[in-house]
């Protein structure tokens, strides 16, 4: 009986979600169908290509310098996520475990820094990067992304850490563990879901960021994916849409897979992080 009730609910759930799902999937359909059109058909208003031109993906790879851009994106996103977490975890730990002078100010600093978007700061940021001698280095982008990720990471982690009972660490101390051991063996495993979510957020923001990369990166060798793909449509005398769409499609696959895989952590982690 309950099975059929669930079946019924499934049907109307899918029906109710269908408009949104159509809207969400529409750009993907545009991407993949355009990517598979023979170049001569790209401008025609048809949906289905006369033949599936898989070669587009191969020619795109060479024509768009895709491999290098993909590697740059992976490098920048991963490294900035690691740096943001390494800086944010101790800070969040301190915020959730101790009272100290300046704590409120630090909290406010984090909140305010969330409001400053890269585009508002880009003129100043660029001067800073030049001062550091990092122009056209992907490392400049790494540092900026990491710094912009810190505020959110601390905020997320701190509220989650606060839900982990202090007794657990203290119990470990009593059993003879050093604080570091207690931290690593007891505390961090418990905090893992929140760290996964935080990492995912930072990673995605870095993966998708546009304005900073556009300003800091000069050569195609250092371009990240969004910039590389944007450069295929911006101000060119002719745009090869089948390549653009093929590149966009391939660029979304890695994140889409990570997403599908970590999606359940995401909800749990945010739930705990957000309320407190």
């Amino acid at each position: 009986m309950s099975l059929s009730r669930k079946a019924k609910r499934s049907i109307w759930s899918w029906v109710a979600l269908s408009p949104l799902i159509v809207l969400v999937l529409f750009p993907f359909a545009v991407m993949i169908l355009t990517a598979l059109k023979p170049p001569s058909e790209v401008l025609r208003q048809t949906w289905i290509p006369s033949e599936f031109h898989w070669r587009n993906f191969i020619t795109m790879w060479g024509a768009t310098n895709f491999g290098k851009a993909l590697w740059n994106s992976v490098y920048v996103s991963t490294l900035s996520t690691i740096i943001a977490l390494i800086a944010a975890i101790p800070a969040a730990y301190a915020m959730s475990r101790y009272r100290f002078r300046g704590k409120g100010a630090f909290q406010q600093f984090l909140l305010v820094s969330q409001m400053l978007s890269p585009i508002v700061l880009v003129i100043g940021l660029f001067r800073l990067v030049v001062w550091l001698g990092l122009v056209d280095s992907t490392n400049s982008v790494v540092i900026v992304y990491a710094a912009f990720g810190i505020a959110f990471s601390v905020w997320m982690l701190q509220s989650y850490f606060a839900t982990i009972p202090r007794d657990l660490e203290e119990a470990a101390w009593i059993e003879g563990a050093t604080p570091w051991q207690a931290l690593i063996r007891v505390f961090l495993p418990l905090a893992l879901p929140a760290m996964v979510v935080t990492a995912l957020f930072t990673f995605i923001n870095a993966w998708n960021e546009f304005v900073i990369a556009l300003t800091m990166l000069r050569t195609q060798d250092s371009y990240t994916l969004p910039i590389q793909i944007f450069s295929l449509v911006a101000g060119r005398y002719t745009v090869e849409w089948h390549h653009v769409m093929a590149a966009t499609f391939v660029a979304t696959i890695p994140v889409a897979i990570i997403f599908a895989w970590l999606q359940r952590y995401l909800v749990r982690g945010l739930a705990l992080g957000a309320v407190k």
């Binding site: 799902i21 993907f28 994916l225 660029a251 979304t252």
Partner: peptide, 21 residues
């Protein structure tokens, strides 16, 4: 997973795809 998908694409790319569409 489907409804979360737009998150996985960079905003720039989403905008490029929509502009084309």
């Amino acid at each position: 997973v489907i409804i979360m998908l737009p998150w996985a694409i960079s905003l720039t790319m989403t905008a490029i795809v929509w502009a084309w569409a």
